[in-house]
Amino acid sequence: VILAAHDAASKFGFGSTGSPLMSGYTSVHQELEFAMADFLGYPRVVLFSSGYLANLGVAQALLKREDWFIQDRLNHASLIDAAQITGAELKRYPHLNNQKAEDLLKADINRFKLWATEGVFSMDGDSHDLFIAALSAHTYNAMLWVDDCHGVGVMGDKGRGVLDTMTLSQAEVPILSGTFGKAFGTAGAYVAGSDDLIETLIQKSRTYKYNTALPVPVVAATLKALEIIQTEPWRREKILELIHLFKQGCEQYGLSDLAKFTNSAIQPIMLKTEAAALEKSAYLKQCGIITTAIRPPTVPKNQCRLRITLNSELESEDIDVLIQCLIGNY
């Protein structure tokens, strides 16, 4: 990945010179868009400079003031901010509560509704039942948008994320977005959808038209990262093994009441108070383990936690050390 970025920098320079519609779009950008579309199983993909800008751009291009933007209460701040800049009416439902979401879909049936949820929630590691969500969206003529930053590249047999694990496609989820800053290890973001959707974003998204394009070295590095994701499934298999070992260790040493077990690489340890989270995070750092203490406003009051994130570079011995540190026995 580093070598790919180096080679591209030597050939193209490091800066991208302008916005995609001016001078910032190259054949390398196009190659990544085509490769991501093929990988995800969508007709077309467009690149954005960051996940935040992608989410703002999608909402701004699709929503008008009289529309409804339906969201999970724990959606990322970028999706909340996206509702604010569009002027659309933000309607939020309790976390993962499909019935409450469906109640919103039923109301005012003639109003356009964009429904956004995360594939894997960044601070909880859990997921909506997207099969049920897709059925609800189809029934009540809403457009479903899944932001799968923490799923694509890590989850599913082919690494296509949460949709891969639930055997879903563009037919059920018309808009799929994500970032390259997580499993890909680079930077930037993408939105996948139909030809019409992507062309609409290119023409109407201000965060696409008026923002500097991704530097070519970053795009080239992402292409190489995508190749690794597709050709080295052992990385995903290893993460599944580490998740199992983590859960097993927590159960063995009495941490089950604190652990919020998930099927993703994100495994929260609930410590409630800020003091407890900060103290445990500092202790783990002394042990050589980096785990951020998550506090309000990122999470609700009295839901402070450690956010354990597992990756394929870890070994079973690392999980053993982590468990011993969590119980204060290291």
Rank of each mutant, 00 (worst) to 15 (best):
A77C: 03
P296C: 06
K247Q: 12
L79M: 14
D148V: 07
P296S: 04
I289M: 01
D7I: 15
T117C: 15
H6L: 12
R307W: 10
N110T: 11
V191E: 07
F184N: 04
A293K: 07
I294G: 06
L314G: 00
T262F: 10
A221R: 00
L3S: 12
Y210F: 15
P233F: 04
L40K: 04
N55A: 11
A82E: 07
G193Y: 01
S49G: 09
T207S: 13
Y283I: 06
E313C: 08
L47A: 05
L3F: 13
E274V: 11
I290R: 07
D124F: 13
T26C: 04
R307Q: 13
P94Q: 03
N302G: 03
V46Y: 02
E118R: 12
A277S: 14
D157I: 12
E199S: 12
N263C: 04
G13P: 03
P43L: 00
A142F: 05
L223T: 00
T231N: 15
G288C: 08
S122P: 02
L278C: 14
L245C: 09
A187I: 01
V120M: 08
Q286N: 12
F131I: 15
L176C: 01
D257C: 05
D7M: 13
Q286Y: 00
L242G: 02
Q203Y: 04
G24Q: 02
D103Y: 06
I2L: 14
Q324D: 08
D129V: 00
F39E: 10
M143I: 10
V1H: 15
N97V: 01
S127T: 13
Q252V: 07
Q303K: 12
S16N: 09
V216K: 01
P268I: 07
S312N: 11
Q71T: 05
Y52W: 14
F184H: 05
T262L: 07
V321I: 05
I289Q: 06
W68C: 10
V321W: 02
D124Q: 15
H128V: 13
K247C: 03
I289G: 04
N302R: 08
V146Q: 09
S177Y: 03
L242W: 07
R206M: 09
G51M: 04
G51Q: 09
